[in-house]
Design a protein around this nucleic acid. Structure first.
Length: 269
DNA sequence: ATCTGACCCTGTCTGC
DNA sequence: TGCAGACAGGGTCAGA
């Protein structure tokens, strides 16, 4: 489910409700996510949530008793509800908060995870990440040299969090279409000018998707339960057999790195 | 060092 | 209607 725009939508949705709240209860209903929820998570009892941040596709809750790292995986979702909320299937983790609120982590496929780190402890998951795409650090001058010697398809590079952060399968497909670049191209044969185009389109696509509250394909909802509206603007993702919005040729579906890849062979060279 | 493919798990949809 | 198989927004790891 969640790529950068969806995670950012979640962050923006939950932050105003839980920043400043105190944790009055920690409930684990299914510990076994991608990594087990640590037993020490219970030490958050009586901690206060100071801030909610996002880095790449990770959420970081900084509390007075350590930092909670949350990754939503493919199907993770967070909702903030009144204390007497109705439990749903796959609600694995609940924080009871002051103000009669609850933060609920739901994840059918359990590819996500929740881990706990000390205030000054380093978080290995965050250390090898590339720059945020929506900052000035993500430029062609940064990316182009990194592609030297890389023969992998450019689409695999776009989805590799060591090169660019936050673009998953949907936005990698859309960005490559917007930039007019064939997703199968070996990364090292993109010209500087092409990388410049790609960088700009990645920024535009992600920024636009954040404005729209992310992409709801089937089950993604913002924390208040409303869908993201970017799905209506998808030009190639999931459009196999449909006419290309630019030239009318059929959108093709191929597989790159085990992931569905949609593109127009006429417009993307 | 780099790249590919298998794998983690559940739900939904398609075609027989 | 039932069932098998394909597929799904992510990331890690072993092996080539």
């Amino acid at each position: 489910m969640p790529e950068l725009p969806e995670v950012e939508t979640v962050r923006a949705g939950i932050a105003p409700h839980i920043e400043g709240a105190t944790i009055r209860g920690v409930e684990v209903y299914h510990r076994q996510l991608r990594y087990p929820i640590p037993e020490a998570i219970e030490t958050l009892y009586n901690a206060t949530i100071e801030k909610v941040e996002r880095r790449a596709k990770y959420l970081i809750l900084t509390t007075t008793r350590g930092r909670v790292l949350i990754h939503l995986g493919m199907s993770g979702a967070i909702r903030i509800l009144p204390d007497d909320f109705e439990h749903k299937k796959h609600d694995h983790f609940v924080l009871r908060l002051s103000g009669n609120q609850a933060l609920i982590y739901n994840d059918p496929r359990r590819f996500g995870f929740i881990l706990l780190y000390g205030k000054d402890e380093s978080i290995p998951f965050l250390e090898k990440l590339a720059p945020e795409p929506l900052t000035d650090q993500f430029t062609a001058a940064y990316l182009h040299p990194k592609l030297k010697g890389r023969t992998r398809p450019i689409k695999s590079i776009l989805m590799d969090q060591a090169f660019v952060v936050g673009a998953g399968n949907i936005y990698a497909n859309e960005s490559l279409f917007m930039a007019g670049i064939d997703p199968q191209r070996p990364a090292n044969n993109l010209s500087l000018e092409e990388v410049e185009r790609l960088v700009q389109e990645v920024k535009k696509v992600l920024a636009r998707a954040i404005e729209q509250g992310g992409t709801t394909l089937k089950d993604f909802t913002t924390p208040d339960g409303s869908p993201g509206y970017f799905a209506q603007e998808l030009l190639v993702y999931g459009q196999k057999g449909q006419p290309c919005p630019l030239c009318g040729q059929e959108i093709e579906r191929i597989v790159i790195g085990n992931r569905a890849t949609y593109f127009c062979s006429q417009c993307q060279k």
